[in-house]
Each structure stands twice: as C-alpha cells, then as structure tokens.
Design a binder for these strands. Structure first.
Length: 286
DNA sequence: GCCCAGGAGTGTG
DNA sequence: CACACTCATGGG
C-alpha cells in the first residue's frame, strides 16, 4: 500500500537517525525502513512530499504514519516559542526538519530501559536481537518489537544470552510488572504524575521516565537529560547541577516545548563531537 | 587495551 | 538533599 503524505518540515535522516528511536535503517536510495505497529514501513522524501509504503497495509496506514511522525506538531509555532531563548535562535533553522516521534508506549519503555549506560549502536543491536529472538516476523528479515508477554515468558536468563548484560533483569522485571491496562491508565495522566508513575517501574529512573514521557506518551514538556544534554547545558548556559535542578532550569527556560529544545541540543552536541560544529550561540564557552 | 555510553539502584553522610 | 559505589559489555 503506497501513498503520499504532507508532513512538513521533515528531515527523515535527523528524525529517524538522531537516536530517539532505534530500529530505522536507511537504504541506498535514501529510503528509510522501519516498523510501526507491526506494519513494515518504507519512507522516502521527494521534495516536500513524503512517500510511504506500508505492508501489508491497513486502511488507516496514512494515519499510522502521520501519528508516528507527529504530523500535527506545528513546527513553526514550536520554534517561535523556543526562539524566545536567544541561545537557541541560530540553530533553529538547521533543526527545523528534526521532528519528535510518537513511539508505541511499551516499545519505548523497554527500549529506554535497555538504553541505560550503552551507546546507540549497542542499543540498536540489543533491540534487534530481542526482536529476532522474541518478536513476530512480519516480513522476511523483519521482526516486530517483542510483545510484553513474550519477554516475560523468555525470562532474564534467556535475555542475558542476547547480550543485554545487567539490563536483562530490569527488562524481565519490567515485562512482568506492567500491562496494557496500566499503560492505558498512565496515558491519561498529566506529565508530572505520569513521570512519578513511570519511576516506580523497575529500571526506570529520572532520565528514562522523561524519555518515555516524551517519545512514548508524547509529553512535549518532558526534558530528558543524558550525558550529552548535560554537557550541552553546561556549555551553552553555564549551568550545572543535579537532575532535578537541571530539570527545573529547563522547564523555566523552554516551557511546554522543552522536549523539542532537548532533542535539538542532544543532536547538536553529538554532531559537535564528530564535526566540531555548533549551531547554537556559545555564549558561555571560554 | 582503553575509554565511553540517551543510568539505575543501593547505601552512606 | 548530595555523593560514592556497583552493575556488565559492545563499540569507537
């Protein structure tokens, strides 16, 4: 099933490759292949037009893709709000095609529990291995992210053999400690309450809770702080402190779209490590 | 080989 | 509240 969508601005490479989600792969023709809700999806940009191919293809496939890419986010409006922070202004144009994604809540939760203290290639490898071992094959060579009950059934010993390290115990406990009803209830909570609820789960602390609130539950005010974002805040704003201090700083500075500011800074900081380029004002650099 | 990674949990001051 | 320590391991 093939169709086109109007999602703009959109940079597929930044959006699907910046490290907020871990399963998308880019092919030679510049098309991206991934899985949304057990559907195999291919995406390619032709100018302003987004061409999507969904297999096997449900009736609501266009809505599926649009929702995943947060097509309703008004990037212009978001950036006008963030532009009140003069430090971000020089980088906004560069990152306007970087959209947050809306992942499945369980996949997001499990993925970010696995993401603790690991780099992105390794995270992608762990997720790929549990998907091949435990996920349903939806097309030759493509496996869905494993359902919660399949992970619980596997047990921590089998998970450990898939190279998850100490995360195997967290994921195993998590898969037993949550269900669809709980996720459904959490999806109705406002950000702060959702965050407190998430932190109760095994393997979920401050940072993972904010990632899941942002990428899984769509709370745009969430501001996950990992080592990269911590460095960015220190460098750009001269601000250091505990997680709770930096979180308050971000809330007051970036407001209800803090999540977008965070992803811009995260991506910028990693680009800077590789290329030396910084798109933001470095007012506090020596 | 060395260093680092989208940290969390636990114990201590 | 803040630190200090441990956890297990692939990738650059």
């Amino acid at each position: 099933m093939k169709f086109s969508l109007d999602v703009w601005p959109l940079d597929l490479g930044m959006t699907l490759g910046c490290g907020q989600t871990f399963r998308w792969r880019v092919g030679d023709g510049g098309y991206w292949t991934g899985i949304i809700d057990d559907q195999l999806v291919r995406l390619a940009a032709r100018g302003r037009e987004l061409v999507a191919e969904v297999m096997p293809g449900r009736r609501d496939a266009p809505e599926l893709v649009a929702r995943y890419l947060r097509a309703d986010d008004d990037i212009g409006k978001i950036q006008r709000v963030l532009a009140k922070d003069e430090i971000l202004v020089p980088g906004l144009e560069r990152f306007k095609g970087l959209r947050l994604v809306k992942m499945d809540e369980w996949e997001c939760l499990a993925s970010y529990v696995l993401a603790t203290y690991a780099n992105i290639p390794r995270i992608a490898g762990m997720i790929e291995r549990i998907s091949i071992a435990l996920g349903e094959q939806i097309s030759p060579g493509f496996h869905a992210f494993p359902r919660r009950d399949r992970v619980a059934q596997a047990g921590s010993q089998k998970l450990k053999k898939l190279g998850l390290g100490y995360r195997a115990d967290y994921l195993s406990e998590l898969s037993e400690g949550i269900d669809g009803a709980r996720i459904s209830r959490m999806s109705k909570l406002p950000y702060e309450q959702l965050r407190e609820d998430l932190i109760e789960l095994p393997g979920v602390g401050d940072k993972v809770a904010d990632c899941v609130a942002l990428f899984g539950f769509g709370k745009l005010e969430a501001f996950p702080i990992d080592v990269w974002v911590e460095r960015a805040i220190a460098r750009l704003y001269g601000k250091k402190g505990s997680y709770s201090e930096l979180r308050r700083f971000a809330a007051s500075r970036f407001g209800k779209f803090a999540g977008y500011a965070q992803e811009y800074m995260y991506h910028n900081e990693r680009l800077r490590a590789r290329t030396g380029a910084c798109m933001f004002l470095e007012r506090h650099s020596r």
